[in-house]
Every structure is written in structure tokens, then in C-alpha cells.
Amino acid sequence: MKPAPFAYEKPGTMAELFGLLAEHGADAAILAGGQSLMATMNMRLSAPEILVDINGLKELSGISVSEDKLSIGALTRHCDVASSEDVAARVPLIHLAMPYVAHAAIRNRGTFGGSVALADPASEIPACMVCLDGEIEITGAMGVRCVPATTYFKGLYETDLQEGEIVTAVHVPVLGDGERHAFDEITRRHGDYAMAGLAASASVSGTTLLNVRLAYFGVAGTPVLAIKAGAALEGTINDSCISAAQNALDSDLDPFDDIGCSAATKLHLAKVLLDRVVRRLVAVQ
């Protein structure tokens, strides 16, 4: 199918962008990488009247590092995040997750901010943001605000983003002393959306974990921070605490049925992932 007709604007400045968004309100959609938006438009599942292409706003691209945080501009392509040495060194979780994001041609075009703005429940990036306790930088005509990832993702494709606003960057804390990250997901084919996935971080000392954060994706409308399971893993890791953490997932997670993957299967896979990812965190490196 071909998309329904729409108008196209490509602002050259942020001011122009917000002018267009103010003018068109809910009729406008932001075009960043377009890797999800264009697919839905080509199937006429969505039909915005105007596409506002932000690819001309070069200030939205790029990765920068300060002492305690790493910032990724919303327009930064997945491929650039994947190949960034800063990301690999300072926020390994994102580096670990990137190869799981779709396929090469999609990563060349898709943007980090686009994934955050779309908030696909099966997407790797929102879960990484939640796991890292990162912040989403949102800009509107009225100015800039930063929202913790933990409150930004509100429901199925629903975020804190308001009409007239766009995601301009994300900020994540850089790796602390002793902090480790691990990532895994279970898919039927390479590059598919995950049946279940897990982004994890913790402070590691030998086989002891502290500050454990387990962010699941593909199991609910938003990334889910498994608080009780994380708490069960604080301390020395052994079979029994892993088993306790797995049991805690019964209350942390409330998965939905997917095509070909029931809630029960998702919960089970979440437990398998917990075991695998936690053992990776404490593995001798």
C-alpha cells in the first residue's frame, strides 16, 4: 500500500519546528528515522496530515560525554550509537543492546530518539533507558525539561511527551566504579522483536551484587523495572537467590499475550533471562 496523502515540512531551526508543531497540533507527526512511522503509514495504519522532518536539525545529532553522564542526541542513528567508542566504554549496556536492534539497513536510518519517542514495548532502547535510570530530554516551545525514564514511559506507545514537544536527547549516567551491565533477549530469529528481553546493571564485587536494576522489555506495555527480583539479588549470588529472584518476577511482571507467545511463556522466558544475565554480571571478566 501507499500512504495516504500528507504535507511535508522540513524546518531548518528549532523555532521553525515549534512553529509548525504549534500550527498543526495533533495533525502533525515528527519524522526522524521513519523506520517505524513510515511502515505504519505505508499500511495506512496511521495517516498524519503533515510530516515534520527533523532531519535538518543537525544540533539534534551526536554523542557527548561529561564527567558523569553521556548524552545522545535524539537524531543520532543507531549505527552511530553502535559504533561509538564512548558508548562502548562509558555505557556498555547500550553498546551491548545495539546489535539486537533490527538489521543493518534499519540501524543506518533509525534514530535513538525515535525509539524513545515511539516507545515500542518490544524495543531494546527504552528498557536500557529505564535500567540506566536515564533521563529523557524533551523540548517544546516553552523550553526544555528532563523526565526520568522511569516515569517517561507511561503505557503502550504512551509517553510523557506532550503535543508540541519532541524528544531532543537522552542523558544516561556513565558507568560507575564496579558497575557492570549485561543484556540479553530471546527472539525466534536474529533481529526480530524479542519475546522477552532484559537489560541489567549492578555494582559488582566478586560474586556480590548491589544496586541491581533489571529492566524487562517485550513483556508489558512499557519497560518494567523488576524491583522485587532486583532486591532479591542484592548480596552474594548463588542458586538460591537467583531462584528467589525468579520467583519474585511473578509479582514484578504481569505479561500480556502476544501473537505466538503467551503471557505464561513470557514470564518463563523472563526467568530464564534473569538467570543468564545475572550469571553474566558476576562472571569473571
Binding site: Y8, L31, G34, Q35, M38, L51, D53, I106, N108, R109
Partner: peptide, 12 residues
């Protein structure tokens, strides 16, 4: 860079 021709608009 390789891209999907169907997910990129000609105007882009």
C-alpha cells in the same frame, strides 16, 4: 549507507 527505500521518502 544502505537504507530501506520503502521507509525513506523521496523528499528526504
Amino acid at each position: 549507507q544502505i537504507v530501506r527505500g520503502c521507509l525513506t521518502l523521496a523528499v528526504q
